[in-house]
Amino acid sequence: MAAMIRFNNVSKFYPREYEALKNITLSIDQGELVFFSGHSGAGKSTLLKLIVAIERPTSGDISVGQQNIGLLRRSAIPYLRRNIGMIFQEQKILYDRNVFANVMLPLQVTAFDTKTSASRVRAALDKVGLLNKEKADPITLSGGEKQRLCIARAVVHRPTVLIADEPTANLDSGYARDIMAVFESFNQVGVTVLISTHDTMLLDTTQHRVLELDHGKLVA
């Protein structure tokens, strides 16, 4: 199967000589579901940020699909991100609008027409089980529902890659299982899914590939 994401000797240094990633080389196939594990500060979030060009590598090459991220001009980054769905550790829900409007945002950004957008938003909400809450204020949602809202927002524009940074953090095991089931369902329809987590219970039970980071190095 073709590689969707490639890292070739990628390192990332932050100011004051802090080395977040050291010579990472890896390849993730199209349609694969991969976990990145490791303790806090191991470099999981940095690795995911490099894929969506929130960060740029200090050295090495990264490619997503056929695009070399290192060669992308700043103006081309938005178009890269439109092919990737991202679930952020800090959720980034907008509390000044309802659930529907939150999920609509990626479609507004890409100028989808209103009718198509509305049906896509409802489809995404239906997929994560939030269709009956489309008019709800996000503040009224439970922790698991908020996370599902973030997933709906990440998949509404039908990306080829889905990235989730600690999606089950702060969720009890029941909610965590629900969330993982949603990711599995997207992966089954061909979406490449990358999940960073330090949830050992989740990692112990998974059948998918787990890449472990330790102090910025890929150890397994």
């Binding site: 938005p78 952020f88 907008l94 945002l105 990626p106 890409t110």
Partner: peptide
């Protein structure tokens, strides 16, 4: 910030 992360152009 969120808009930029999900692909909004400047």
């Amino acid at each position: 910030e969120l808009s930029k992360l999900i692909g909004a152009t400047d």
